[in-house]
């Protein structure tokens, strides 16, 4: 099929900020998004917020997904949002998952994380949210 007659794939960065080594969830989500037609840049474990934002800009992603199960989300998620703002890239939506208590989730959503999912969330729900949130091509 000629390249420009079909819809261009959306690009999403899946990253794990901080020292948390739980990567199953991030990998499961990455694979589900691939199977839904996303191009998933999987950046691996132990990324600093600076590295995540830099990767997002270089890879020109339409969406960023963050995964934390260790409890460090209240420090790290807002840092990523702040750096995006500083880079004038706050138009890139960010969503997240992992072990995140409801009260924290509420505050993080207020801070600008667009959606947050905990254990047991169906992959369908995650995929359809990603499709809704991802920036569309300019």
């Amino acid at each position: 099929m000629p390249r420009n007659t079909k819809v261009s794939p959306r690009r999403v960065l899946i990253a794990k900020p901080g020292l948390d080594g739980h990567d199953r969830g991030a990998k499961v989500v990455a694979r589900a998004l691939r199977d839904a037609g996303f191009e998933v840049i999987y950046a691996g474990l132990r990324q600093t917020p600076e590295e995540i934002v830099r990767a997002a800009l270089e890879e020109d992603v339409d969406l960023i997904g963050l995964s934390i199960l260790s409890g460090a989300h209240m420090a790290l998620f807002p840092k990523v949002l702040a750096l995006l703002k500083k880079e004038k890239a706050a138009d890139i939506p960010v969503f997240a998952g992992g072990i995140i208590p409801d009260e924290d989730a509420r505050r993080l959503k207020k801070a600008g994380i667009r959606a947050i999912f905990g254990p047991g969330t169906s992959l369908e729900e995650i995929v359809s949210t990603a499709q809704r949130l991802a920036r569309s091509a300019a």
Binding site: K6, P9, A30, R31, L33, R34, D35, A36, G37, F38, E39, V40, I41, Y42, A43, G44, Q47, T48, E50, E51, R54, A55, E58, E59
Partner: peptide, 26 residues
């Protein structure tokens, strides 16, 4: 099948968040 992909080469790439002399694209 889906047209999607998982681009994982960045995993091996060392952290150079502040080096403007490098650019990496998957």
């Amino acid at each position: 099948y889906s047209g999607g992909s998982v681009l994982g080469d960045r995993i091996r790439f060392d952290r150079r968040a502040d080096d403007a002399g490098v650019f990496f694209r998957s």
